[in-house]
Amino acid sequence: MINVPNIITIIRIMLVPVFLVVFWTFGPHRVFYGMVILSVAGITDIIDGYLARKLHMVTPLGKFLDPLADKLMVISVMTSLFIIGRFPLWLVVLVIIKELVQMTGSVFIVISKHLQVSANFYGKAATIAIYAALFSCAFQITGSSKITVLAGIISVVALCNYALIFFRQRSY
């Protein structure tokens, strides 16, 4: 079902190619403008989630599109920053592996168990840590390497928590 939160999420998905075009064509100001677009995407993520819960407009489509929008944007930003030498490859690889494992597990749980998979505290903490790493690396803030390590650790904890949930759902 298409509703206001889902429309906002679709707009967020459309911001991914906008980010890529801006980042790769705006020369010396590309990082700044790209991070503005990431900020807009992050704010709209908060807004659509709030509206969906507050107005009881949570839909299966929204549960699918919302994390997809996040993953597409974060991976696009991380990869772009890596290419220009501002983001570590190990964290790009870690986050991509984490997301692929989580998506695969989610699909398995949804198809085989007919259960919904929802974000939890650890996943939200990992997202916040990754955003902090993206911004600190993009703007080359002192201590950004520590922030990326923290983001990596929190991402691994989130993945382990997700794996624990996955294995609890399996029937042997």
Rank of each mutant, 00 (worst) to 15 (best):
V22L: 11
L134R: 03
G143T: 06
F139R: 04
G85S: 08
A69G: 07
T25D: 08
I153S: 02
V93G: 08
I7H: 07
L159I: 04
V92Q: 00
I147G: 04
S136G: 05
Q116M: 14
A163N: 09
P28V: 12
G152V: 01
M103Q: 12
I141E: 05
L150W: 04
R30W: 02
L65D: 04
A69K: 03
D45F: 03
L159R: 01
A132L: 15
I130Q: 10
V93T: 13
V22I: 15
G27M: 04
Y172A: 14
V93K: 04
V117I: 09
A69R: 03
I11W: 06
G105P: 07
V21P: 08
I10H: 04
S118I: 05
V93E: 04
K113A: 14
M78W: 01
R86K: 15
I141D: 08
F19G: 06
V92A: 01
L20I: 12
I153W: 02
G42M: 05
P88K: 00
V101T: 13
T25C: 09
A133N: 06
I84D: 12
V22T: 13
L61G: 08
L134F: 05
K54G: 06
I37C: 02
F139C: 08
T148Y: 01
D48E: 08
R170C: 15
V93N: 07
V156N: 02
I2M: 14
A151L: 00
D70T: 09
I165K: 11
F135R: 03
D66W: 11
L134S: 10
H56P: 06
I111W: 13
N6Q: 10
V31M: 10
W90D: 06
V18C: 05
V40A: 12
R170W: 14
V18K: 02
A151H: 00
T148G: 02
L159F: 02
I46P: 01
I84H: 13
W90R: 03
W24T: 12
P60Q: 13
T25A: 08
R12F: 06
I109Q: 11
E99F: 00
L115W: 12
L89M: 15
A138N: 12
V157R: 01
A129K: 01
I111R: 15
S144R: 14
V58E: 11
V58H: 04
V117D: 07
Q140F: 05
T142G: 14
F87G: 03
T104K: 11
G49S: 08
L81D: 01
M1H: 12
L115N: 13
I13T: 03
V101R: 01
G123S: 04
Y122H: 13
A129I: 07
I130G: 09
G123I: 02
M73G: 10
L150S: 09
V107R: 06
I84P: 11
K63R: 15
V36C: 13
F64Y: 15
D45P: 03
R12P: 01
V107S: 11
G123P: 03
R30G: 12
I75N: 11
A41H: 07
V31C: 09
L51A: 10
P28G: 13
F87Q: 04
M103S: 14
P5D: 11
V117K: 04
L164W: 15
Q140G: 11
K63H: 10
L94C: 00
Y33F: 15
I109H: 11
M14W: 10
A163T: 13
R12A: 03
F26T: 14
M57K: 15
V36E: 09
A132E: 04
L55G: 01
I46S: 08
L81M: 11
